[in-house]
């Protein structure tokens, strides 16, 4: 990707877009959480990103890795609940992977580190009706698209977002095994996971921003063809 100042500008724009999207979807997320949780996911995420946006001026002087780390620590400091450690703590740890700037290679390492941290902290596995169900297909698709299919990162990321969307859909018909939704047992079936949903919103905003900043077009046709029509469970 371009030099550090452009990376910084893109990153700040992405953060602002994510914050705006979370604010706009606050009640969507809270409504999803009302059905199978405790009705606070939208407010919690909003409180975190509101605090992040207040720090945007400080970001002007920071490296991309430090910006991502600061977003993480700010979320940890302001959100609480499980979302604070899961979203914030994982960003903080994974930010180390961006110390040499944002490239195709470092972004894959970042995505993998982020997924691993979320799974580790949340003790969650694929199919437990959590954000892991959106992240896993996204991270796998992103890595495969770049490393095996030699696609440009932007195209790879568009495919990853598409995969995350299918992951979110996958959370609907399955029973929760982690988080507060697991307390509902079978009653959790039929509801979409709020954490997987906010994860998708964040990725969609990053993609939207990347499209504005990265040269080259997304290959829409390649995106459409990329994700096989398989049941994620069978694909294991």
């Amino acid at each position: 990707m371009a030099d550090e100042s452009v990376q910084r500008e893109a990153l700040i724009a992405a953060i602002e877009n994510v914050a705006a999207r979370i604010e706009a979807e606050k009640s969507t997320l809270t409504d999803l959480d009302s059905a199978i949780g405790d009705a606070d996911h939208g407010n919690n995420m909003h409180r975190g990103f509101e605090a992040v946006v207040e720090k945007v001026d400080e970001f002007e002087e920071m490296s991309p890795a430090d910006i991502v780390k600061t977003v993480g620590t700010t979320i940890i400091g302001n959100v609480g609940g499980a979302s604070g450690p899961l979203y914030g703590g994982s960003l903080m740890s994974a930010s180390q992977e961006l110390e040499d700037g944002i490239t195709a290679e470092t972004s894959i390492a970042f995505a993998e580190a982020y997924l691993e941290k979320v799974k580790d902290r949340g003790d969650a596995h694929l199919g437990a009706k959590t954000m892991v169900d959106a992240l896993t297909p996204a991270v796998h698709t992103y890595k495969k698209s770049i490393e095996h299919d030699d696609l440009p990162p932007l195209t790879a990321f568009a495919k990853a977002v598409d995969a995350a969307e299918r992951g979110v859909e996958f959370t609907v018909p399955i029973r929760a095994a982690k988080g507060r939704a697991s307390f509902l047992g079978w009653r959790s079936v039929g509801h979409q996971d709020p954490g997987a949903t906010s994860t998708l919103f964040i990725m969609q905003e990053i993609l939207k921003t990347a499209e504005e900043y990265l040269d080259g077009e997304t290959d829409a046709e390649a995106v459409a063809e990329s994700v096989p029509d398989e049941d994620p469970e069978e694909a294991k």
Partner: peptide
């Protein structure tokens, strides 16, 4: 005390 029904942060 965290926010309503939300754990306090580790810092606090």
């Amino acid at each position: 005390s965290g926010e309503v029904f939300t754990s306090p942060t580790a810092n606090e």
